[in-house]
């Protein structure tokens, strides 16, 4: 390898200026793969519930992907690095934006506070019977456990 570069230096430089060298090619593809992987894996693994907290490891993978893509395109701007950069940024930034910016969590619970009565609650139970919070007044304490559902 070293022999080639010392004798054909001019040609080698000209060639690498025209097209991304092997290392940056790998970086470009790897960047795209990780960017895409972060988002795709998140949706595939997490399934129904998208909550910001469990998106973090996937966002890290995506972040690394975006970083690699950026390095590749800055070090060796060329057809390949640009071609891989576009989908990489689209998927990577799209994923990060959608999870961390667009998804709005509900605001503070105004109706629900310690020291005041909770909002009225009347819902069917697993047998279809209508159950009300009011039914329990005077009868005993109630613990409401809200959970995600969709199991």
């Amino acid at each position: 390898m070293t022999e080639v570069s010392s004798t054909t230096d001019g040609a080698a430089t000209a060639a690498s200026a025209a097209a991304p060298s092997g290392r940056y090619k790998t970086l470009a593809w790897l960047g795209l793969a990780l960017s895409a992987l972060g988002g795709v894996a998140y949706f595939a693994v997490i399934g129904g519930l998208l909550m910001r907290a469990n998106a973090v490891p996937f966002a890290v993978v995506t972040g690394i992907g975006l970083l690699l893509t950026t390095i590749a395109i800055f070090q060796r701007p060329g057809k390949l690095t640009i071609l891989t950069a576009v989908p990489s940024y689209l998927m990577g930034l799209g994923f990060i934006l959608s999870v961390f910016v667009l998804m709005k969590l509900p605001g503070p619970q105004q109706g629900l506070a310690v020291g005041q009565a909770p909002p009225p609650l009347t819902l069917p139970n697993q047998h279809g019977q209508s159950i009300s919070l009011a039914d329990y007044r005077g009868k005993g304490p109630v613990l409401l456990v809200f959970y995600r559902g969709h199991w």
């Binding site: 310690v114 020291g115 005041q116 009565a117 919070l133 007044r137 005993g140 109630v142 613990l143």
Partner: peptide
């Protein structure tokens, strides 16, 4: 949410 028998959180 824990509610006592008087209906208060």
């Amino acid at each position: 949410v824990l509610i006592d028998s008087s209906g208060t959180v």
